[in-house]
């Protein structure tokens, strides 16, 4: 009994609504994370200024990632020095484009205040470097994702390897280095290429 015209307009209206819905959805959804991106992992982090952010929030910019803990007598100062030395090889303009994220193994003791104290003690530029903590389960997931083995020892300290990992703007691993205390030329090359103006980050 329904006139064909009415049917047509109803269908058109439906199609229009569907299109608008799709457009709205597309606008509100962030760009898809590639399947080989470490930003597939969602993990809640808190930085030295008690700001919370997600591990995947680095999406869009190259990032140098490592894991450490504040009360670490030997490896972690060496790790921080190695990252400094490595990024020191970059021209200043390229260095300014690099984010550095250090995630703590020590969910219990590395509060934002403890991270802040370390940043001040080591004169870390927190405009580009972020010291972050996560709860123990997320620390485990991040370390698994970065393939950094660690173990808490009976005295509360952590046994872990010193590792630097370079992610591209999409969160894919570009380079990895376990050379500590001196420059790793292959890693420096990867860093320079990733940050060179010829391949600007989107």
């Amino acid at each position: 009994m329904t006139p064909p015209r009415s049917l047509f307009s109803r269908a058109t209206l439906g199609l229009l609504l569907a299109l608008i819905g799709t457009a709205a959805l597309a606008a509100s959804t962030p760009p898809a994370v590639p399947a080989d991106s470490l930003y597939q992992l969602k993990a809640a982090l808190t930085d030295q200024d008690a700001r919370t952010f997600d591990f995947s929030a680095g999406h869009g910019k190259p990032r140098l990632i490592s894991m450490f803990y504040a009360d670490c007598p030997y490896m972690c100062p060496l790790l921080i020095d190695t990252i400094r030395k490595t990024e020191g090889e970059l021209p200043e303009a390229a260095r300014a484009r690099l984010d550095v994220l250090l995630v703590s193994f020590d969910a219990e003791r590395d509060t934002p205040a403890a991270l802040k104290a370390l940043a001040e003690k080591r004169r870390i530029d927190t405009a580009r470097w972020t010291l972050a903590r996560a709860d123990a389960a997320d620390v485990r997931r991040i370390a698994a994702l970065l393939d950094i083995p660690f173990r808490q020892l009976a005295d509360g300290s952590f046994s872990h390897a010193g590792v630097m990992i370079l992610l591209d703007a999409d969160g894919r691993v570009v380079a990895r280095s376990e050379t500590m205390g001196k420059l790793d030329p292959a890693f420096v090359t990867a860093l320079t290429q990733t940050l060179s103006p010829a391949t600007p980050s989107p």
Binding site: M75, P149, F150, R151, A161, G162, E178, T179
Partner: peptide, 26 residues
């Protein structure tokens, strides 16, 4: 949960590069 570093002595995980493994703590 903590499968990844059950034995942390360098000789059990070292892949030949003497710089590969250095650890915090004992």
């Amino acid at each position: 949960d903590d499968f990844s570093a059950l034995i942390v002595a360098p000789d059990s995980r070292d892949q030949g590069d003497p710089d590969r493994l250095k650890f915090c703590g004992e």
